[in-house]
Simulated scan of single mutants.
Amino acid sequence: MSLLCAARFETPCRINVEHSPESLHAHLELPDEIEIGPGDRVQVHGAPVVVPFGTSMVIDRTATVEVAGPLRRAWTRAAAYFDLAELYEVSFTAGRLA
């Protein structure tokens, strides 16, 4: 276990996207047994999602979850306390993590 990254693994995920007059959102759902904590990173694999106006989509993809190590988790909590950073990081990419 490293101080920055404790574990890295791939998992299926589901993306719910809506682009309508009522809402513009994208929600990422991971399997129930996976808990995301401060400093964790999630990278979703696949092409960018384009949703025409007035529609919604549900897309199944694969994601790589990188669990924060103790140093990154502590830094993220401290930074969030002082409103310096987001608690979680999610990115979408067509490539894969190295």
Rank of each mutant, 00 (worst) to 15 (best):
I59A: 06
E29F: 02
V67Q: 08
E35W: 08
T93G: 13
G46S: 06
P21G: 02
C13A: 03
E86A: 15
G54L: 01
V49M: 01
P21H: 02
D40G: 07
L3N: 10
P21A: 04
F92P: 00
V42L: 02
T93N: 11
V50L: 06
L71W: 13
A6F: 05
G69Q: 09
V17N: 03
L4G: 03
V17E: 01
G69I: 05
P38K: 09
V42K: 05
R72A: 11
A6T: 07
L97T: 14
Q43N: 13
A94S: 14
V58Y: 01
S2V: 08
E89H: 14
F9V: 12
W75F: 15
G54K: 04
W75C: 13
V44C: 08
A94N: 12
V49G: 02
F82Y: 15
D40K: 05
T76M: 09
V90N: 08
A26E: 01
E89M: 10
H25W: 04
A6S: 12
F53T: 08
I59E: 09
A26I: 00
R96V: 10
P21T: 00
T93Q: 13
P12W: 00
P70T: 10
A26N: 00
S20F: 05
N16T: 02
C13G: 00
L71M: 14
A63V: 04
E35V: 11
